[in-house]
């Protein structure tokens, strides 16, 4: 049984339908990439899984349990965490406080403050500064660390590379390998196709709110992806 499964998932912003009948699934321990152009609905997909956007109860199942009608704060406790687009650290909290609030739901597991600092030693040095004093790359690390603090079994990452220099992106993706080795399922949204496919087992391509292609990441056909990505 897959760990996460959506069936005919639809999502709306008011009257505007952003997702149409999405069939998405992820098995325990897998790394999945979700790619697509601007406005394709990638963020919306993650937000809907996470309970930040309403959908019907049976549209999202986690370990076979319907969770579509739960709120984000309930879903975190079940073992899904999200690194939101744009990092969204809490400005009035210090770096360490940001990490600590990541563990607010109280889920136990292998991730602790010490282990997050091991993974991102730079954060340990700057633990007491306001979170907004960090560089962009450090902020992204703090946002990942914060999500890990809830000991998720499934980690949703939205555009980790946004606005970061290539060397830093490389570091961050190296850390994803460590996280994946713990057995954590990763669901990675990226616009940078090759970066995402380099780490993923399988990928989904979204186009205007629909899955236009779903395939194993290895040996993909460039032309097919271009077609699925842009619809041309």
């Amino acid at each position: 049984m897959s760990q996460l499964k959506t069936s005919s998932l639809r999502a709306f912003y008011g009257d505007f339908q952003a997702l149409f009948d999405i069939e998405f699934q992820a098995d325990e321990g897998e790394t999945i990439a979700v790619i697509g152009a601007n406005g394709a609905g990638k963020t919306t997909l993650l937000r809907t899984i996470m309970g930040q956007l309403a959908c019907d109860r049976d549209m999202v199942k986690f370990d076979g349990r319907p969770i579509g009608d739960l709120d984000a704060h309930e879903i975190v406790g079940m073992g899904i965490a999200m690194v939101p687009e744009g990092r969204r650290l809490f400005p009035s909290l210090s770096v360490e406080e940001n990490l600590k609030i990541g563990g607010y739901c109280g889920r136990r597991g292998s991730w602790t403050l010490e282990r997050v600092y091991q993974l991102f030693p730079m954060l340990a040095e700057r633990r007491d500064v306001p979170s907004m004093a960090l560089s962009g790359g450090q902020q992204q690390m703090a946002a990942i660390g914060r999500a890990l603090m809830s000991n998720p079994r499934l980690l949703l990452c939205d555009e980790l590379s946004l606005g970061l220099a290539p060397v830093i992106i490389k570091d961050i993706y190296a850390c994803l390998d460590v996280i994946s080795d713990e057995g954590t399922t990763l669901d990675i949204v990226e616009q940078d196709i090759s970066r995402a496919l380099g780490i993923a087992d399988r990928f989904y391509c979204l186009q205007e709110g629909r899955v236009s292609l779903a395939a194993p990441a290895g040996g993909y056909d460039q032309a097919a992806i271009t077609q699925a990505y842009f619809g041309i």
Partner: peptide
């Protein structure tokens, strides 16, 4: 921890929800 939750909810309620804070 309660104080952190208060401040986080004040900063950004939607993201606080992602941390398990029921706003």
């Amino acid at each position: 921890g309660l104080g952190r939750a208060f401040r986080a909810a004040s900063d950004d309620p939607d993201t606080a929800e992602l941390m398990g804070v029921d706003k």
